[in-house]
Design a protein around this nucleic acid. Structure first.
Lengths: 357, 357
DNA sequence: GTGAAAGCGCTAACAA
DNA sequence: TTGTTAGCGCTTTCAC
């Protein structure tokens, strides 16, 4: 069964024939290179007769255009950059995946980089993207973008950011509507009978973390639930942070009966810490995440969480960039996009211990 | 605290000055463009005096070379492609991350794509990479590479594959030594007192899955443990597959007391299914994974698993490609690389229920 | 509708 | 050591 051998590679080239170029095609089709170029680019000004000959030659030679030459002369690279905070966070691969899908569908290629929250890395990322002449970059780093804003502005590159508006007309913004999801989560918990709800926030350096926290507060107020300051803890959007946050929460004599986490991996850290501490979720503690990463469905118990669609976010980011890249200077374009959230109830929430309903 | 406003982008360009090109730099530094080119490329044949002037001009103009022009004339794109099976599988982002790191450190850029196990997508991936004139492709799809081998061979592109040797001198192979890790896992389980060990294999279409299964068998034989055919189940390397595999195992009256899974996410599926079924891990069932994804440490209980270093794999893949790209034709290069595995014992393994030791 | 020719920004001979 | 020049493969005027 195991293929362990060494197979000859098929399609062995006898002569190391240089890849066909536009001239080869033109010669074979007996037309000028201009006609080949026009044919490839779908110019209507080519007769069917020649067009057919050209396509035939292209097929026969397995020709395809050299992107570098194309970009050089046309000034358009059809390349977008996408920078994420950390590709290792499961939130981002899904985002990248969707972004790539829609980009490829529109004939764009993407350059991916993670900043790993390091401004130096971020700077070289941007630099590399600039060298490759990207037509736009999506900075989905949620709050680490400042250091390179100048760099990009100087080169007049379209930019799309999440939750951060810039005056520069070359920038677009994606607003995330956490309000709806967070309100649903608080209401869900309140409906279950919880009144003591904690919040494990993300780093205050990250815009989205701040927005999430604010929206949590708003939702609590709307539900007329008290916000206990000590239970609102700044964590760091990592599993370890979730563990630490849980321990902090446990240190209170009468701590919260439910906790909402600023993201799913924090919630997973809480789940783990609770398990290690012998606490049962959801009987002893209800836990809510935010993001709904693929994994959320497979935690123990399955995580109740606020879903933020990566696909929607990716589509919005691409669309923003595409409009920037393809809209004629002075043309009007949409510079603000909204992506919404919604609650997904699974197994990590239940009435608090001793609830009467 | 929340930055909700709209800040003017700094570094506002007054005139939409075209990005500086090599001629601008040459003019400012009062040298020829050749000297600028030499300076940038570190040619030793430039006097310190001119070199200094050139760097100054570069700094002042914030100039950087146009990669497309460079690639066009030099014939070298300094681009590698990396194709993974599915970026959403946590194994791959870590791999990509490491690959990117080492590539960037060596002045290469990378193009990332997932094939999603779809030959059509794979074909267009390769096509796009070819258009961008990548100097090599790392196909880390573990068994889906056949459909595009021709395509790549025709264009004479260096290729590195995992666990699949090809005769073509332009291809290199990374062999994964699962033997060591699997032997360690079986011995660990045997040492705990297990004799009834099942195996949840991956799809038989994937080379690595087959290798893993074979190495499991070898390890079992070496440990003089019986291999129960019914307990060796073909699964599909997904969490759902793990759930299904567990259920199948449970359907036997006297099933195995331990199960080794072909990858971690399968093991996580098993963990989840066991939990839902009211079985305790590791008391009622020991579970071992393979890969050691970041998450493995945070499952409940923490997963005992066979670690396969993504960083090592990525480094090997890059090195293979770099050698192919930079070795003069006819020069000798290493075409086979070996990456090893080792057992990481955590909380999902314990003596079987009723063990005497 | 088609072709000839002028570059896109750069590197690499070749001269000086 | 430095400069001049001929392209890399393509798109895009501009003639015809």
């Amino acid at each position: 069964m195991l293929y362990d051998g060494c197979v000859p590679r098929k399609g062995t080239r006898k002569t190391v024939a240089k890849a066909a170029d536009i001239r080869t095609v033109a010669a074979l089709a007996k037309v000028s290179i201009a006609t080949v170029s026009r044919t490839i680019n779908g110019s209507p000004a080519v007769s069917d007769r020649l067009s057919k000959r050209v396509w035939q030659a292209i097929e026969q030679l397995k020709y395809f255009p050299n992107t570098h030459a194309r970009s050089l002369v046309s000034g358009r690279s059809r390349l977008f950059g996408i920078i994420v905070e950390n590709i290792t966070n499961p939130f981002f691969p899904e985002l990248i995946q969707s972004f790539e899908e829609v980009a490829v569908a529109h004939g764009y290629e993407i350059l991916v980089s993670s900043s790993n929250s390091d401004p130096a890395i971020l700077t070289t990322c941007v630099r590399r993207m600039l060298e490759r002449k990207v037509e736009g970059v999506a900075m989905l780093t949620f709050g680490e973008e400042e250091p390179v804003l100048d760099q990009l502005a100087v080169h007049d590159i379209p930019l799309v950011l999440a939750e951060f508006k810039l005056a520069d007309p070359k920038t677009s913004t994606i607003l995330l509507d956490y309000t709806t999801g967070l309100k649903a989560a608080v209401d869900h918990l309140a409906g279950l009978g919880h009144r003591k709800i904690g919040f494990l926030a993300g780093p205050h350096t990250i815009h989205s973390a701040i927005t999430r926290l604010n929206d949590f507060r708003t939702a609590m107020e709307a539900a007329k639930l008290p916000i206990e300051k000590a239970w609102v803890i700044e964590s760091d959007h990592t599993m370890r942070g979730g563990v630490a946050g849980f321990e902090r929460l446990q240190s209170f004599e009468k701590g919260p009966t439910a906790v909402i986490c600023s993201n799913d991996i924090t919630a997973i850290g809480v789940l783990r810490a609770a398990y290690m501490a012998g606490l049962r979720v959801p009987q002893d503690l209800s836990v809510v995440g935010l993001d709904d990463i693929d994994f959320a469905e497979f935690t123990l118990p399955p995580l109740t969480t606020i879903r933020l669609s990566r696909a929607d976010l990716a589509r919005a980011a691409f669309e923003a960039l595409r409009q920037q890249a393809e809209t004629a200077p002075g043309g009007k374009l949409q510079r603000e996009f909204l992506v919404s959230t919604n609650l997904v109830v699974r197994g990590s929430t239940a009435p608090p211990a001793g609830a009467h309903s």
